[in-house]
């Protein structure tokens, strides 16, 4: 059981589950996702004290993704200890060699995807996550971000292209092996 904090009646509660979902998908670790949720909550609280965001969900998605990228960068900076710790936790949490292999593979995949997301602009990042993970339509994303639908489509294509370029190397390795 993890206590996130006192929502102070500022509407964080209804978005907490989604914030956790975005963070978990991209980080793959429960406690990392909770760290992100708590950090985003603090920023949300500070933002609401100044001025409540006009598009709360869009604001939270952008801040969450930025925080996820920051956390990934920190983890990559201490890559060696993190890798060994990750390997230990992976072995401890799973039961069979297949599970271990699958988790390591997923970890590498997450690493590739977040590295690609790191190269995108805030808007592109928000668009691709809203489309892929939240199943929003282009019209909904456009309304949330205050952009034209055609602009959102352009951002989406560029974002997919960037992630694809990153994943292509991975696919080439898989096919060669």
């Amino acid at each position: 059981m993890t206590v996130i904090g006192d929502p102070s009646g500022r509407g964080f509660e209804q978005y907490t589950g989604e914030v956790y979902g975005w963070a978990y998908r991209l980080l793959g670790r429960h406690h990392d996702a909770l760290d992100v949720v708590q950090d985003v909550f603090l920023r949300w609280d500070a933002q609401c004290a100044r001025q409540a965001p006009k598009q709360p969900r869009g604001w939270l998605r952008r801040v969450t993704l930025n925080r996820v990228i920051d956390l990934r960068r920190q983890q990559q900076r201490i890559a060696e200890p993190q890798a060994s710790a990750c390997a230990e936790s992976t072995v401890a949490e799973t039961r069979s060699p297949q599970d271990v292999g699958m988790r390591i593979d997923q970890e590498a995949l997450r690493d590739d995807i977040t590295t690609a997301l790191d190269r995108l602009s805030d808007v592109q990042r928000s668009v691709i996550v809203a489309k892929v993970y939240d199943d929003m339509t282009f019209a909904q994303v456009a309304e949330e971000l205050g952009l034209a639908v055609s602009t959102v489509k352009t951002h989406y294509l560029r974002a997919v292209g960037t992630v694809r370029d990153r994943l292509k190397r991975r696919w080439a390795k898989e096919e060669s092996s």
Partner: peptide, 28 residues
Amino acid sequence: RTVTTMRALPGPARATVRREGNRLVIDD
């Protein structure tokens, strides 16, 4: 394939959050 790969990352669409008094709680 890129979109499918991204979608295939396991994870919840959203977590279940409950309120306990004045606090928000996510199951560990």
